[in-house]
C-alpha cells in the first residue's frame, strides 16, 4: 500500500532476479525484495547492469534496527526507465553485523555506507574508507541502535573528546 508511485513491485523484481541469480532472493513482498546478505553485491550488480532493471543509481541507503537483526535498505532507481526498486538485506547478527559493501557498483555508497557504519555499526566489507563520520573515532557504541541507551556507562557523561583525558576538567 504505501509504495512510491513509480515503484516496481518486489515480486516482479524478485522473479527476474532469481531467474538470473538463483538462490539470491530470500523473500519478496509487493514493496521490496529481500536478498541474501552474502549475495547482495551480486544482486545489486545484476540490477545495475541488467537492461530491464537498469538500476543505475543508488538513491538511498539506510539501515533499520529491528532489535534482533538489521535491515539494510537500498532504494535503487532507473532514470531512463523511471522506476524505483527497493532491495533489502537482513543481517541477522546483532553484535557485530557485517555486509559486503556495494561501493564497487555504486560510488554513491561511499558516504552513505560510512554513515550507516557510524550510526548503526554495520561493517561494510570492501568499503575503501570505513571510518566514523559524524562521531569521533573511539566513540562508544552506535547511537541509532535501539539498545544504545541501555549500554552501561553511556548515559550520562558520554566521555570525552579525544584530547581530553578522563578525570581532567578542561578549563
Amino acid at each position: 500500500m504505501p509504495a512510491g508511485p513509480r515503484q516496481l513491485t518486489g515480486d516482479t523484481v524478485a522473479s527476474a532476479l532469481s531467474a538470473a541469480l538463483p538462490g539470491a532472493v530470500a523473500t519478496a513482498t509487493a514493496e521490496w525484495v529481500e536478498v541474501e546478505p552474502a549475495r547482495i553485491l551480486d544482486a545489486l550488480r545484476w540490477l545495475h547492469d541488467d537492461a530491464e532493471m537498469d538500476a543505475k543509481q543508488l538513491s538511498n541507503l539506510c539501515a533499520v534496527d529491528r532489535h534482533d537483526r538489521f535491515e539494510v535498505v537500498y532504494h535503487l532507481q532507473s532514470m531512463d526507465r523511471n522506476h524505483q526498486i527497493v532491495v533489502k538485506a537482513v543481517v541477522g547478527e546483532h553484535d557485530d553485523p557485517a555486509l559486503p559493501s556495494c561501493y564497487p557498483v555504486y560510488k554513491g555508497a561511499l558516504l552513505q555506507e560510512r554513515e550507516v557504519y557510524d550510526l548503526m555499526g554495520i561493517r561494510f566489507e570492501g568499503h575503501p574508507d570505513l571510518r566514523r563520520m559524524f562521531l569521533w573515532e573511539g566513540y562508544p557504541g552506535f547511537p541509532l541502535r535501539k539498545d544504545f541507551l541501555q549500554i552501561p556507562d553511556h548515559h550520562p557523561g558520554l566521555p570525552k573528546f579525544p584530547f581530553e583525558e578522563p578525570g581532567v576538567q578542561a578549563r
Binding site: K56, Q57, L58, S59, M79, Y106, K107, G108, A109, L110, Q112
Partner: peptide, 9 residues
C-alpha cells in the same frame, strides 16, 4: 555517468 553512479541529484 559518474554523476548517476555517484548518487548525485
Amino acid at each position: 555517468e559518474d554523476a548517476i553512479n555517484g548518487s548525485l541529484s
